[in-house]
């Protein structure tokens, strides 16, 4: 299982940031060729990111590159330059529908080396049209590993004003989470853009987790710790999940049909959730700690 609690953007034409991208402990780093790079420097950033992918130590962070969207005419060159450098995934901006994914996937397949494991796709949904197509995008190609939400462009597309409270994006968030869940992939939330507002960030992370997001994009390394704290399973969740797993195995041994934990019925989706929590807890080494608190 790939954990993507935090996905940290690193500007693609900034050598200092590129070489330090691995030190912040983000689950994923997103080396950005799109918004962070001015139109005149696209060629320079592409080479810089390609060389960084080959040589920079990103420690345990998943390596993702955000390429330029299909309407820019840069996508094919980006893919040809980046995919052979073995990123783990590409983040495709402004995905409008499944055809975009299929086009990109074909280009990626052509650019991959003979023994290269397939590079995954994370689709960034940031238009009303893309949101309407979210499930079809999520299921357009087996490479699609997650849907991510970009609220700034999306809100502009709606003709709404982006607010800190975010009522204007509540429906979109829920819709996106649902589409991802239906396709059995992860949903990643939009970044919290006010990097000075720690309390606002913590509240926004809590809301995203509550809505079903599995992680959050981030535009500032300082946010990573808070995002991890927010998306890591809590002690309460771990204890609950272990009870569920124990109840299931006990039921199997005894051949009982109906299973309940704390007076509530357990069925497949609940078991799935419990298993995910346990897996995350194991990855993060949190299991023992849960019982100390």
């Amino acid at each position: 299982m790939t954990m993507r609690r935090s996905m940290l953007f690193i500007p693609g034409n900034n050598p200092g940031m590129l070489q330090n991208g691995g030190v912040f402990g983000a689950d994923s780093v997103i080396l950005d060729l799109e918004d962070a790079v001015s139109p005149l420097e696209k060629d320079a950033a592409r080479r810089l990111v390609a060389h960084a992918l080959r040589t920079v130590n990103y420690a345990n962070s998943e390596k993702v590159v955000r390429i330029n969207s299909l309407d820019t005419g840069l996508t094919e060159d980006d893919i040809k330059a980046i995919v052979p450098c073995r990123p783990d995934a590409l983040l495709i901006p402004k995905v409008q529908g499944p055809a975009d994914i299929q086009k990109v996937a074909a280009l990626m397949a052509a650019a991959e080396g003979p023994e290269q494991p397939p590079v995954q796709i994370i689709a960034l949904i940031e238009t009303p049209r893309g949101l309407a197509e979210a499930y079809n995008i999520a299921t357009a190609d087996p490479r699609v590993a997650a849907l991510a939400f970009g609220a700034e462009d999306y809100t502009a597309g709606l003709g709404a004003t982006r607010t800190k409270e975010g009522q204007e994006i509540l429906t979109a968030r829920c819709w996106l989470v649902n589409a991802a869940a239906a396709a059995e992939i992860d949903a990643i939330d939009t970044p919290y853009t006010d990097t000075a507002d720690e309390e606002g960030l913590i509240a926004d992370i809590a809301l995203a987790k509550q809505l079903g997001f599995k992680g959050k994009l981030s535009i500032n390394p300082r946010q990573v710790e808070h995002i991890h704290a927010g998306f890591s399973p809590s002690a309460k969740e771990i204890i609950w999940a272990e009870k569920v797993i124990q109840a299931i195995s006990l039921a199997k041994e005894q051949g009982t049909g109906v299973i309940a934990v704390d007076g509530k019925m357990i069925d497949a989706p609940i078991v799935n959730r419990a298993e995910r929590i346990i897996m995350l807890a194991q990855l993060l080494g949190l299991q023992k700690e849960a019982y100390h608190d």
């Binding site: 050598p15 070489q19 060629d43 320079a44 060389h51």
Partner: peptide, 25 residues
């Protein structure tokens, strides 16, 4: 600059100067 940055910047400049570059994979 690190080595990878030096190479990337040099190749970018060379491409901008009109040199046809070998793939440097």
């Amino acid at each position: 600059a690190l080595d990878c940055t030096i190479k990337a910047r040099l190749l970018t400049a060379a491409a901008r100067a009109g040199f046809k570059l070998k793939e440097d994979n």
